[in-house]
Amino acid sequence: MSATTLTPTGAVTTDSRMERSSFARDTGIVLMRELRPMLRDPFSLVFGLVQPIVFLALFGPLLGGSLAGSVPGGSVWQWFVPAILVMTALFGSSTVGSNLLYEMQTGAHERMLVTPLSRSSLLVGRALKEMVTLGAQAVLIVAVMVPFGFRLYPAGAVLGLALLAVFGIGLGSLSYALAIAVRKQDWMFWVVQQTFLFPLMILSGMLLPLESGPGWMQVLSRFNPLTYIVDAERALFSGEIATATVAWGVVAAVATLAVGLAVGIRGMRRSAD
């Protein structure tokens, strides 16, 4: 006679809830670990908050003089401020791999790998640190720019920051994967990062509109996921939520997240071998 083992119908649901809770806890641990050094160094924190304001102060008047009335929507600040937030997320997320390179040189990364923390939480927690900084920068930028004519749409702004967080986690994971791939030649990290960073920025229409650019640049911009992120942020910060532009931005951000986590987790597992 064979014995039959009955599995409670709620077991799968309970296991999935426990996995989500464990992932959230692990991510929180990694996030706090990454935030502590930044909180201990207030100068770098203040400099990171002020840097986007300086860029707006220097670059904004040039745009106001040369592009006034020609940018979509007619408002230079409404067009440029969301782009500055995207640029901040882009620079912050794409350079986080350099911190991992330092940890691999000091042995801190190997010590993290032997802990029971999940590999995905090591990626997401580290990338979220940059999103915390981005949130603080966004609040400061909006507070400074509102008196100069920037219109704030709270719902769109919150959704815009959430979209940037999704994109930033994916891009940060790719940065970590790059750091792991070039750990024996760490100078290659900056070569690859810079090679891809500036073409992506220019071809996204982040700093200058591409509508008046050559046809080949407009074609290439359509294959640039950052283009759709920038367009979606401009729409959200202008109060446009349920639009096709925002939908394409969500698709680009989620695709970046999926690819980044897949490549990053694979790289983390290989680095542990």
Rank of each mutant, 00 (worst) to 15 (best):
L152P: 01
A157W: 02
V146E: 00
T106C: 04
G92D: 10
V96C: 13
L113Q: 14
L123M: 12
L134K: 08
V158L: 06
L134D: 00
A136G: 07
L90T: 14
N99A: 15
S121E: 12
V139P: 01
K129T: 07
T133R: 03
A108G: 06
H109A: 15
Y153L: 07
Q137G: 00
S118K: 15
G97D: 06
Y153W: 07
Y153S: 11
T133A: 04
S94N: 13
V139S: 01
S118P: 11
S118N: 14
S98T: 13
T115H: 01
V144N: 04
V144P: 02
G107S: 07
S120C: 07
V142A: 03
L128K: 09
R119F: 07
I141C: 00
L117F: 07
M145P: 01
L101E: 00
Q105R: 13
T106E: 07
R111C: 12
T106F: 08
S120T: 13
G149L: 03
Q105T: 10
H109M: 09
M145C: 08
Y102M: 14
V132G: 03
R151K: 12
G135C: 10
L122Y: 12
E130C: 00
L159F: 02
E103M: 11
G125Q: 05
L122K: 13
G149T: 10
V146G: 01
P154N: 06
V146S: 04
V158W: 00
L100E: 00
E130T: 08
A155S: 11
A136P: 05
V146L: 02
G107C: 03
A143S: 08
Q137I: 11
G97Y: 03
N99G: 15
L159Q: 01
M131F: 08
F148S: 12
G97N: 03
A138H: 06
V142P: 02
R119P: 09
E110A: 15
G156Y: 01
R119A: 13
V139W: 01
S118I: 15
Q137D: 09
V132P: 11
T106P: 02
V124G: 04
T115I: 14
E103W: 13
L128W: 10
V146T: 01
E103G: 08
G97L: 06
I141L: 09
F91W: 15
V146D: 00
S93D: 10
A138G: 02
H109T: 07
L117G: 08
V144T: 04
S121C: 14
V139F: 03
V114N: 06
L134T: 02
Q105N: 03
L134E: 00
T95R: 15
I141G: 04
M145R: 07
Q137V: 10
E103D: 10
A138F: 03
G156M: 04
G107H: 03
Q137N: 06
F91P: 05
G97Q: 03
E130M: 09
V142E: 01
Y102E: 15
V158A: 05
L140S: 04
V96G: 09
M131I: 13
P147M: 05
L134I: 05
H109W: 15
I141P: 00
E110R: 14
A138E: 03
M131N: 11
S118D: 10
L140Y: 07
R151M: 11
Y153P: 00
L100H: 05
E110F: 14
L101I: 13
T95E: 12
G107F: 09
P154Q: 09
A127C: 09
M104Y: 04
S120V: 14
V96W: 06
S121M: 12
T115Y: 00
E110I: 14
L90I: 09
